[in-house]
Amino acid sequence: MPDKFAAAVSVQIRRLPHGEGLDLPHYASHGAAGMDVVSAEDVTIAPGARHAVATGLAVAIPHGFEIQVRPRSGLALKHGISVPNAPGTVDSDYRGELKAILINHGDTPFPIKRGDRVAQIVLAPVVQALWDEVDTLGETERGSGGFGSTGGHGKL
């Protein structure tokens, strides 16, 4: 349900046999950036464990774009379920099954049933870098200070 004022990009999607009968990724509201994806399998993720949850879908992402796999905020807050490499990247030349790598940061096993919403995906443009190796870099006020060098937290 893309907003009529937003740009839309066509993405080919293929339902795999174990994805039959499941919802395709979709936006929950007109202003949503991410589309919910559902599990194509039943699995329980133990505390501290990770699992690549099958979605039963494969996609052909247009060149110049990626799909980012992100955690669902409700699962993260209520159950400690996240995407350990958030955001996970699906490259435009990948044609295998879309999976969501989930980790259980909670203290109890987390059951996932087929059809449960497990992650969200965002189609995003990609800009590739061309390296320009130089002997020196321009000066800035911050300089080479990093990891807390700009402050912002009383205990830093």
Score class of each variant (00 low, 15 high):
154 G>D: 01
33 A>W: 08
27 Y>N: 03
109 P>T: 03
20 E>V: 06
71 P>M: 13
129 A>V: 12
71 P>F: 10
155 K>T: 11
10 S>N: 15
115 G>L: 10
101 I>G: 04
12 Q>V: 15
23 D>C: 06
48 G>V: 09
149 S>E: 00
35 M>F: 05
85 N>K: 14
129 A>H: 12
86 A>N: 06
16 L>D: 08
48 G>W: 07
53 V>R: 00
130 L>P: 00
155 K>E: 14
26 H>W: 12
9 V>Y: 14
75 L>V: 05
117 R>A: 14
79 H>W: 02
29 S>H: 15
138 G>W: 09
57 L>H: 06
68 Q>R: 15
81 I>S: 02
1 M>R: 01
139 E>D: 14
132 D>Q: 06
40 A>K: 02
33 A>Y: 09
133 E>W: 10
94 Y>H: 11
75 L>Q: 00
67 I>T: 01
126 V>N: 02
49 A>S: 12
121 I>Y: 09
145 G>D: 10
80 G>S: 08
101 I>E: 08
36 D>I: 01
83 V>T: 04
7 A>L: 12
137 L>S: 04
13 I>P: 00
136 T>W: 12
63 H>P: 08
53 V>E: 13
11 V>W: 10
36 D>G: 07
112 I>L: 04
144 S>F: 15
122 V>D: 09
27 Y>M: 10
14 R>L: 11
3 D>P: 02
116 D>V: 13
